[in-house]
């Protein structure tokens, strides 16, 4: 086939083995507004945009040398006026024994626009995915924070629960606990007949004591009595400050007689307390659970016993 390759509708470049241009056809010169002399003796990347030159050297040439061919590579030449010409480039090794490469370039300005739009679309999609991922991370972070807040809330609730069941002055359980515990123990007693006893204790002459020494001293006495009562108690026992100078002790699995012994012991201990403000004494009433008891039944018996102890001269234990 005899043909004039100078004017085929494609650019043609011949390179020697050291990547130097040895021939170029007129078509490529015309496209780029350059003369053949502008090409000959130079490396092709010197006629490309800087990015394309890098890409040519970094990818195309090594691949061409390694594999003897490259196909459908997109890159850009620079024309004389500094405008870019996007082309598709394919190249192969020259037939042996020649050492070099033949390079064909086809403009793809129009195709390129499509490509660029596709690439842009893909980037947009990638950014959207990244944004989604970021949003997901945010949701995860929020979920985590929510979980943390729940934990904090649970902690606060338990603190609140403690506050709600604690007597602020003495640190002992308050009356709410008495109400709960007495119900529980009555229920247990009804079901399993496990005996339990209730001791009500009241500080003698507390009002006078308060009037004489002031409330701070009264509070001090209440604390000391609370500490003394709680000393030596079993884990299962419940000590409560009922209000004012009145305390209650619920002793599970304890008979009336045993409870009276406990009450007597506590009475002795309080009497021996060496308070800075003189001797403090305690009157105590003891009752044990009986069949059919309601909580006011057992409380009433203990309270009547306490009244009896008071009326018989205080600083003593009565039971019923």
């Amino acid at each position: 086939m005899k043909h004039d390759v100078d004017h085929i509708p494609g650019g043609l470049i011949l390179l020697d083995g050291s990547n130097t241009i040895t021939a170029v056809n007129q078509t490529l010169c015309d496209w780029l507004g350059l003369s053949k002399q502008d090409f000959l003796g130079h490396a092709p990347e010197t006629r490309m945009t800087r990015a394309s030159g890098m890409y040519y050297l970094g990818h195309v040439l090594p691949s061409l040398r390694l594999h003897g061919r490259v196909e459908e590579v997109l890159l850009s030449f620079s024309n004389a006026a500094g405008k870019d010409l996007s082309v598709m480039l394919s190249a192969t090794s020259c037939p042996k024994p020649e050492d070099g490469f033949q390079v064909l370039v086809i403009p793809m300005q129009r195709r390129n626009l499509v490509e660029e739009q596709l690439q842009q679309a893909r980037k947009t999609a990638e950014q959207a995915v990244a944004a989604k991922e970021e949003a997901l991370q945010e949701v995860r972070a929020m979920a985590h924070e929510l979980e943390e807040r729940h934990k904090e809330l649970a902690r606060l609730n338990s603190q609140l629960e403690q506050l709600a069941t604690q007597d602020a002055l003495t640190g002992l359980n308050n009356r709410r606990v008495y109400e709960r515990e007495i119900e529980i123990h009555l229920a247990l007693f009804r079901r399993s007949k496990l005996p339990f006893a209730l001791i009500l204790a009241d500080i003698d002459w507390f009002k006078q004591f308060n009037d004489r020494f002031g409330h701070d001293t009264g509070d001090q006495v209440l604390k000391e009595v609370g500490q003394c009562l709680s000393a030596g108690m079993r884990d299962v026992d419940t000590l409560v400050r009922m209000g004012g100078e009145e305390f209650a002790l619920i002793l599970p699995n304890t008979t009336l007689e045993d409870a009276a012994l406990v009450a007597e012991r506590k009475r002795g201990e309080i009497e021996k307390l060496n308070s800075r403000h003189g001797t403090v004494t305690l009157s105590l009433g003891v009752a044990a659970a009986r069949n059919g008891d309601t909580k006011s039944d057992i409380y009433g018996r203990a309270d009547r016993s306490l009244y009896k102890a008071k009326s018989q001269g205080r600083n003593q234990v009565c039971m019923s």
Partner: peptide, 13 residues
């Protein structure tokens, strides 16, 4: 900018 263009070229090719 050249570097970004080249990275784009790589991506496309």
């Amino acid at each position: 900018q050249d570097i970004h263009e080249m990275l784009d070229l790589m991506e496309r090719n």
